[in-house]
């Protein structure tokens, strides 16, 4: 079996206060987590449990205090070039139009037909008519879609998502979740059609996951259990911080393709929800108590 898309082993992150070296905070301790090629994994946990820290480590934006990160079997150093990152906060460059934002990554890599590809992606997320608008002229949902196009336009093998839809209203959110699932599921066809951006790194996702036709691996961070179950293949539960670590792992064996709104009504979903919530509940309460005490 080939190497997983992303593999964190024994990762700990300790932050030291810049002014007072004695003030230490361990966000995550000894986390081991793998995301197979083409697999959709969600990480849930109470607020402040270091979910984002894990994602930043996987992205190469943050170096872990200890432990190793491997991307398709190769140790990660610097930015994870095979990953795309969708941030929780506004991440579009406000001085670029929607189209120019989607183009940015392609432009940075010197892709010749950047404009055409960006336009194509903008159309795929339903914003073909809004390319010339600046981020402040778009609604929150449109900005998220632009971010999605920006991330996917680079055709990354791994997508890291940090509560990307938490700022959206529930209807827009479900629409976006379905869109992401559709883009993720339909990705195999797109990939074969379009020429690959960079020289495809060896043992890419397409070979690793056989029948899945080169779906991207997704590491999805959320605090919304419903969202996590509805979207993923696997849900990992983190304990309350500080020093969070995975305390439970559940395989989501719901049929695909899924509609995130409809799947919530199925008995299996309810069963899974109860099982995972049973683990998560104590941690949420623990986290809440800690926040009250602080």
């Amino acid at each position: 079996m080939s190497a997983p898309a992303l593999s964190l082993s024994g990762v700990s992150c300790t932050f030291v206060d810049r002014h007072d070296a004695a003030q230490r905070y361990t966000a995550v301790r000894d986390v081991t987590l793998t995301v197979g090629a083409g697999e959709f994994v969600s990480v849930v946990g109470p607020t402040g449990c270091g979910k984002s820290t894990l994602l930043n480590v996987a992205a190469g934006l943050l170096e872990p205090s200890s432990g190793t990160v491997e991307v398709f079997g190769a140790p990660l150093s610097g930015i994870n070039a095979r990953a795309g990152y969708m941030f929780q906060a506004e991440s579009l460059m406000p001085w670029r139009t929607a189209l120019a934002n989607v183009m940015a990554g392609l432009e940075f890599r010197g892709v010749p037909d950047a404009r055409e590809r960006a336009m194509e992606w903008l159309k795929r997320v339903g914003l073909g008519a809004f390319g010339e608008r600046y981020p402040h002229q778009l609604s929150g949902g449109m900005r998220k879609r632009t971010s999605l196009a920006q991330t996917l336009a680079l055709d990354p093998d791994i997508i890291l998502m940090d509560e990307p839809f938490s700022a959206l209203d529930i209807q827009t959110r479900q629409l976006m979740e379905n869109e992401v699932l559709a883009l993720w599921a339909g990705d195999g066809d797109k990939r074969r059609a379009a020429p690959s951006l960079s020289p495809t790194p060896s043992g890419g996702a397409s070979e690793a996951s056989g029948g899945r036709q080169g779906r991207k691996a997704v590491l999805f961070i959320t605090h919304d259990l419903d969202e996590a179950i509805a979207m993923s293949d696997r849900v990992v539960v983190l304990s309350a911080g500080p020093a969070s670590r995975p305390i439970g792992e559940f395989k989501v064996d719901l049929e695909r393709p899924r509609d995130v709104a409809e799947v919530r009504a199925t008995p299996r979903f309810v069963e899974l929800h109860q099982a995972i919530w049973g683990v998560l509940r104590d941690e949420v309460l623990k986290g809440y108590q800690q926040q009250l005490a602080a």
Partner: peptide, 13 residues
């Protein structure tokens, strides 16, 4: 914005 900066780095700048 640190997020815009991190995003640009992730996009390969």
């Amino acid at each position: 914005s640190p997020v815009v900066l991190a995003n640009a780095r992730m996009l390969g700048a």
